[in-house]
Computed example of a mutant assay.
Amino acid sequence: MPGRVLVLGSLNVDLVTRVERHPRPGETVLGEGLQRLAGGKGANQAVAAAAAGAEVAMVGCVGDDEGGAAYRERLTARGVDVTGVRVVEGAPSGHALIAVSDDGENSIVVVPGANDLLDEREVAAVDALGAGDVLLVQLEVPRAVVCTAVRRAAGRGARVVLNTAPYAALPPDVVALADPVVANEHEMQALAEAGAEPRSLLVTFGANGASWDGETAPAQAVEARDVLDTTGAGDAFCGALAAALARGAEREEALAAALAAGADAVRHVGAQPDPAL
Rank of each mutant, 00 (worst) to 15 (best):
M1P: 14
P2K: 12
L8D: 05
G9C: 09
S10F: 04
S10L: 14
N12V: 10
T17S: 14
E20F: 02
E20I: 07
E20H: 08
R21N: 12
P23S: 11
P23M: 15
R24H: 09
P25T: 12
E27S: 12
V29R: 09
G31D: 12
G33V: 10
G33C: 12
Q35I: 06
L37T: 01
A38H: 12
A38G: 13
G39R: 06
G42H: 03
A48T: 00
A48E: 01
A49M: 11
A50F: 01
E55Q: 14
V56H: 01
V56R: 01
G60K: 01
V62Y: 04
D64A: 14
G67I: 00
G68S: 10
Y71H: 13
L75R: 09
R78H: 14
G84Q: 13
V87R: 07
E89S: 13
S93G: 10
G94L: 04
L97D: 12
I98S: 10
I98K: 11
I98D: 01
D102R: 15
D103P: 01
D103R: 06
E105S: 15
S107L: 11
V109S: 10
A114T: 11
N115K: 08
R121C: 12
A125E: 14
V126W: 05
V126R: 03
D127N: 13
L129M: 10
G130S: 09
L135Q: 02
L136I: 09
Q138H: 09
R143M: 03
V145R: 08
V145E: 03
A149L: 02
V150R: 00
R151I: 05
R152Q: 12
R152E: 13
A154I: 08
V161T: 07
A165Y: 11
P166Q: 13
A168W: 05
V174H: 06
V174W: 05
V175H: 07
L177P: 03
A178F: 02
V181N: 03
H186D: 13
E187A: 14
E187P: 02
Q189T: 15
L191D: 00
L191W: 05
A194K: 01
A196R: 06
P198S: 04
R199F: 06
L201I: 04
L201Q: 05
V203C: 07
T204S: 10
F205M: 10
G206S: 08
G206W: 01
A210N: 04
A210H: 01
W212M: 06
W212V: 00
E215R: 15
T216R: 15
A217E: 08
P218T: 13
A219M: 07
A221F: 06
E223K: 14
A224L: 15
R225K: 13
L228M: 09
T230A: 07
T231C: 10
T231V: 14
A233W: 04
G234V: 06
D235W: 04
C238D: 13
G239S: 05
A240G: 09
A242Y: 01
R247T: 07
R247H: 11
E250Y: 00
E250N: 04
E253W: 02
E253G: 02
A254K: 02
A254T: 00
A257L: 05
L259E: 03
A260I: 00
A261H: 06
D264Q: 15
A265W: 01
H268F: 15
G270R: 03
A271S: 13
A271T: 11
Q272G: 07
Q272L: 15
D274C: 10
P275F: 02
L277W: 14
L277I: 14
